[in-house]
């Protein structure tokens, strides 16, 4: 499907770059006033705090609807169904978009996901040693965090703040710690969202956690792939609806798979099940970002496939695999530190 130079990862990077520019600076394209009115329910972390964003993520209306509508009706009484109407409208809008790309919103559209990949590339070019795969036990311990983030920070605390059980300062706690808020505003040249807020103990704590996570994410991303994605509540939200999306990941497992495992090594989210699962043909797991690397690095014909509804987008292919592997090796060889090392070694010899 792709020429010798162009592969799926290159196409994806170009799409991600275009989406980053559109999501972070797109207000002038969609219109200044329209920018926060397009969907308000984007299945990716483009940020409402960015004055130049083209559209923004669904997590902010969800938090506000839980606090301002649902929580308040629970506390003060009233029409519960009516309180859920804005939430349902946002959810339907979200699903309308999500169905089209499924979890590929993470791997192809999200500005924060792209930023982490760029940092990892930067780390590799600096000659820092990439952690190829995290330990299985560590991955297992990290996985529940995204569900906790979604249930506690996006839904739980905002509802409790609407009821009055916790402070109103906890009305949108995920936004307060979200690294995309800091990243996208900094990318537009504004330091407005990089702060420690000393107004209340709650805001102070949240702003310190948010800033700390942002710095931590950058340092981790230099050597570890997609560190924040692994705990992102958007990943969990996608996982709830992954069955209805049109983009799918299919596996026709063969006995050779057992000894191979190249797909799992290629996976930036360390989804080992993509290798070990031999029972299911639908292998779109909760942590998948539909980046397609597993398909690219599968050496066996048609064992892994990425499909759009019934139509194949890319299928595993031995020829493609060879080219892709070569391209990866060539790409990874080019790094400042590596060259320096090679030269030193040569001169030492």
């Amino acid at each position: 499907m792709f020429g010798t130079q162009i592969n799926l990862s290159v196409v994806r990077k170009l799409v991600q770059l275009g989406m980053f520019i559109f999501m972070v600076y797109g207000a002038s394209i969609v219109g200044f006033y329209a920018a926060d009115k397009i969907s308000n329910a984007l299945p990716a972390l483009a940020c409402a705090y960015d004055a130049e964003t083209a559209d923004y993520c669904t997590l902010i209306p969800f938090q506000h609807q839980m606090g301002h509508r649902v929580g308040r009706v629970i506390a003060a009484g009233g029409d519960v169904l009516q309180a859920f109407v804005p939430f349902f409208i946002t959810l339907i809008t979200f699903l309308g978009m999500f169905v089209l790309l499924n979890k590929a919103f993470c791997g192809w559209v999200c500005p924060l996901g792209f930023f982490q990949e760029v940092v990892t590339m930067f780390g590799q070019k600096l000659g820092l040693n990439k952690t190829e795969s995290l330990d299985e036990s560590l991955v297992k311990r990290i996985r529940p965090i995204k569900w906790i983030m979604l249930s506690v920070l996006v839904f739980g605390l905002p509802i409790l703040s609407g009821i009055g059980f916790v402070s109103h300062d906890l009305g949108d706690p995920f936004c307060k710690i979200c690294p995309s808020r800091i990243l996208t505003t900094l990318a537009t040249g504004s330091s407005d969202q990089l702060y420690v807020d000393t107004s209340t103990p709650t805001f102070m704590t949240l702003s310190i956690i948010g800033d700390f996570i942002f710095g931590l994410m950058i340092a981790l991303a230099l050597t570890i792939r997609q560190p924040f994605c692994r705990i992102c509540p958007m990943l969990a939200l996608h996982a709830v609806f992954k069955k209805i999306g049109l983009v799918r990941l299919i596996k026709n497992g063969k006995p050779r798979c057992e000894k191979c495992g190249l797909c799992a090594k290629a996976c930036p989210m360390d989804i080992r099940e993509i290798h070990t699962d031999m029972e299911h043909s639908n292998v779109l797991f909760a942590d998948c970002t539909l980046c397609g690397r597993c398909v690219e690095f599968c050496p066996d014909k048609d064992v892994l496939q990425m499909k759009y509804a019934m139509f194949p987008i890319i299928s595993a292919d031995p020829q493609y695999f060879k080219r892709r592997k070569k391209a990866q090796t060539t790409w990874e060889k080019v790094n400042l530190f590596g060259r320096y090392c090679n030269q030193t070694n040569k001169s030492e010899r």
């Binding site: 702003s207 310190i208 700390f212 710095g215 931590l216 994410m217 340092a219």
Partner: peptide, 9 residues
């Protein structure tokens, strides 16, 4: 604090 997070990482 961002710097602190980075150093910790």
């Amino acid at each position: 604090v961002v710097g602190g997070g980075f150093l910790f990482g």
